[in-house]
Design a protein around this nucleic acid. Structure first.
Length: 185
DNA sequence: CGGCTTTGACCTGCGC
DNA sequence: GCGCAGGTCAAAGCCG
């Protein structure tokens, strides 16, 4: 499992000059350092279909950075989904990205509202929790920067958006289309 | 004024 | 059973 290392190197990356601007409405407008995207995945490659299609077909990786941060690996930390009495706990699959970026928040075209932040063990950076603000859409994501490599931001998505993207994601889709997945199953 | 962030408290699951 | 860590809630404050 230690060898399990998926990596998104933008092999056919455009020249550094274009540096994959992801500036899609980031309040601080500082989104442009995603020169590397790493994709954690242990299944089939995603359809080049943007996020929605992407996530529809993938299982979450249970082994992200097992050497570094246990929080993403191992037994998925319980996702509490209406754990009412008698109800079975259902865990939604999660999809994790590693992004090399100066800013934490990947603007993927959806609107997110932060609902929590927690200090994570063995990591000097806190993890932030976001929820999609679209009505009826229950997608969540977590954003965390790695201690080992401060340039890397891990974004974990949970659930599927039930609505179209709210902003233009041309740039982001451009990135997605360039991603390559290496899996070792 | 509405939407968002911040932050401490609370809840739950898991390992020992 | 207890303690720890992760995840969520919700009140308060901030900002456009």
């Amino acid at each position: 499992m230690e060898n399990y290392q998926t990596f998104f190197s933008s092999a056919a990356t455009p020249p550094a000059s274009s540096s994959l601007s992801l500036n899609m409405g980031n309040p601080h407008g500082a989104y442009r350092t995603t020169d590397h995207l790493q994709f954690q995945n242990n299944k089939s490659p995603p359809p080049a279909n943007g996020f929605l299609g992407l996530m529809s077909d993938m299982e979450v990786s249970n082994n992200i950075n097992s050497s570094q941060s246990k929080s993403f690996g191992g037994p998925e930390t319980a996702v509490r989904l209406g754990t009412k009495k008698g109800e079975k706990k259902i865990r939604k699959p999660r999809y994790a990205f590693q992004t090399r970026s100066q800013v934490d928040i990947l603007d993927d075209g959806y609107r997110w509202r932060k609902y929590g932040q927690k200090a994570v063990k063995n990591n000097k950076f806190p993890r932030s929790y976001y929820r999609c603000t679209h009505q009826g859409c229950n997608v969540k994501k977590q954003v965390q920067r790695l201690t080992k490599d401060e340039g890397i931001v891990v974004t974990t998505y949970e659930g599927m958006h039930s609505h179209p993207i709210e902003k233009s994601t041309d740039n982001f889709e451009h990135i997605l289309s360039q991603m390559q997945i290496y899996t070792s199953i």
